[in-house]
Write a protein that binds this DNA or RNA. Structure first.
Lengths: 138, 138
DNA sequence: ACAATAAATGTTATTTTATAACACCTCGAG
DNA sequence: CTCGAGGTGTTATAAAATAACATTTATTGT
């Protein structure tokens, strides 16, 4: 049940477990939720999870949601080459969708540049109501 | 040394202490750093700080930096009425500047809307090099 | 194949960040 | 006065992340 399109470089055992747990969850998980999920598979300590997450983040297979202290599997085919990413987090159902902001990045950079600031990385997390929840509760 | 322009509604004792500590710091502080800073002023427990921070956040006098798990005093005259805020965090000197993105907000909302998502709040945190650090180290 | 080296793993303990639960105090509206 | 909301003080605990160290598994050069 591995739905990613990435040209997955060989993952180690723990990296694979953590990545599968995340993709399988279909939503954000905290490191400790992943830990619980993987107890039966030999993962016993937080560090095992954090170490795998670090590598997966480097590879761009996983993203970190700062405002939730949690992690999601990347929803895009090919994320290392990625422009600025944007996460839309639903306040009701907690679902997360990952949007690409082509112009957004340029605009952010120019806005920052007007203050003499050179952007290296951007965290953009929106809170709101997703389309599914918006329809169900008028 | 209270540089804010806000029409500061009366702050309670702890709120005032926390706010002063933050404005005085001139940069982001963690809740526990604030706690340490205020030990001599009768603040002894994390909750005292977190409770004050909660109110200050509500009032818009203070912002939370999700990617740092820390807090800054608002740099703008009048922030409750504010548009989407954007924080530029320097990787070298850790200074933070708060920029206003007028069009940015519109663009974010329309980008999200194209996915059926209704934005309630946005977290935008940039990592990079501030103008001061950019000049000193070519 | 084999030593040398790098990367990943397993484990215990600790640090850092944030809340829960409960008692008390203060101050203003009725 | 009184009672009720918001603020405070305190102890204990939960949740998130890292430090330090020993061991094991891959990789690489020769």
């Amino acid at each position: 049940m591995n739905t990613h399109q990435h040209s997955t470089p060989e993952l180690t055992k723990n990296q694979g477990l953590v990545y599968d747990s995340l993709s399988h969850a279909g939503g954000p998980l905290s490191a400790y939720a992943i830990l619980d999920d993987l107890r039966d598979h030999g993962i016993r300590a937080p560090l095992q999870v954090y170490r795998a997450l670090d590598k997966l983040l480097e590879m761009g297979l996983v993203h970190r949601l700062e405002s939730l202290n949690s992690f999601v599997a990347c929803q895009h085919p090919d994320c290392d080459a990625r422009a600025t990413m944007l996460f839309a987090i639903c306040s009701k159902c907690s679902c997360v969708s990952e949007l690409a902001g082509e112009d957004l990045e340029a605009q952010l950079k120019s806005l920052a540049a007007s203050d003499g600031f050179t952007v290296q990385a951007a965290t953009i997390e929106l809170r709101g109501i997703c389309s599914a929840c918006g329809q169900s509760a008028a």
